[in-house]
Design a protein around this nucleic acid. Structure first.
Lengths: 193, 193
DNA sequence: GTCTATACCAGGATAGAC
DNA sequence: GTCTATCCTGGTATAGAC
């Protein structure tokens, strides 16, 4: 049972591997535990991904593509609402103590090869770029004060989102990251309440 | 040479271990590489720290104490300047790609024991608490708009600082975290420039 | 495509000599 | 306090049967 025709094992492996990296880091990912979780033997995974590097690379590429797809699907009319929705994506992708996969890779930066690093660098650059565009639009719409420097605030938002996933692991009663972004957006509201 | 009377080895081990964790994570810390770096054999380190857990615990405790000492030593008259100076502490403690030690531990959360977790949780709570007090003072002094919610902004600042250390590893030309904090403080300035 | 079996290596840890 | 030597575990990886 469990492993029938077996054509779907490859994608199952990738799904589990992504969760494992987000939970325990790249170093915490092992073929053994992965195999056990899937009810398979380690060599079966080696058949699909000969080296661990290949698995990490494939998982990272898929994660970046899927996340980006969800970002471009955001269609709120208000720029600041788009940013709030964006923060929710982080919550969704990182439930119960998981990190953003790219954040987890960055944490294990010294143990991943260059191909993976390039993907992660591009991911962060893309996120900052998207956020910058939203901040720019928010200023144009009067939702943020025009004293705000778009690129700087975008970087701060991204750092805060990635960092909050890290910090909340140590929180006794962790909350979502959305309220944190609210704080920053309220901060930049043009009309002093 | 190198290992003379040997009474200082214990502290040398702790210093190197801290750097290793900040660079490669708790999982990336090994007695072997540590020993090699210090020109000693691995068992010599076991003599001072029987188990790896003990070493991690000792290093974390020292890091937290030393960081806290540097925080309370901040004496700028302006609350926002104190926060800017605080951001510089992060830069100092995390040069060339290192993370805040507690951030690194949080990234390897699943592989550290409860004693260490408590230290890290306390560390983050202390930092958020200190930041909250500065934000409160900044509002009282008119350096930040009173629409700002102190606890929320403090959390965001801490998350942004921890996260920026992570994200900048993937940056092609990483910069200090200080400018990022400037962006957030400018954001909360009461008078729209 | 998946399995069993196995080689191989690195890291953590201990015993006992000096 | 530091060493040599050794054990054990767990993880990566390969060969070859089914």
């Amino acid at each position: 049972m469990a492993r029938p025709t077996g054509r779907e094992l490859k994608s199952e492996v990738m799904t589990e591997a992504s969760l494992a990296i987000q939970r325990r880091g790249v170093g915490g990912l092992s073929y053994g535990s992965l195999a056990e979780r899937l009810g398979v033997r380690a060599p079966s995974i080696h058949h699909h991904f000969r080296r661990k590097d290949e698995l990490v690379l494939a998982v990272t590429a898929t994660y970046c593509a899927e996340f980006q797809a969800r970002v471009v699907a955001i269609d709120e009319p208000s720029p600041t609402d788009r940013i709030r929705r964006y923060a929710e994506l982080f919550d969704e992708v990182a439930t119960d103590g998981r990190l953003c996969l790219c954040g987890a890779v960055a944490a294990d930066w010294s143990s991943v090869d260059d191909e993976v690093r390039v993907l992660v660098s591009t991911f962060f650059a893309d996120q900052a770029e998207w956020l910058r565009a939203q901040v720019l639009a928010a200023i144009a719409d009067g939702e943020l004060a025009d004293a705000v420097e778009p690129a700087r605030l975008a970087d701060a938002l991204l750092a805060a989102l990635e960092g909050s996933l890290l910090v909340r692991r140590a929180d006794v009663e962790p909350s979502g990251v959305a309220r944190l972004v609210d704080a920053l957006l309220d901060l930049g509201a043009p009309a002093p309440a």
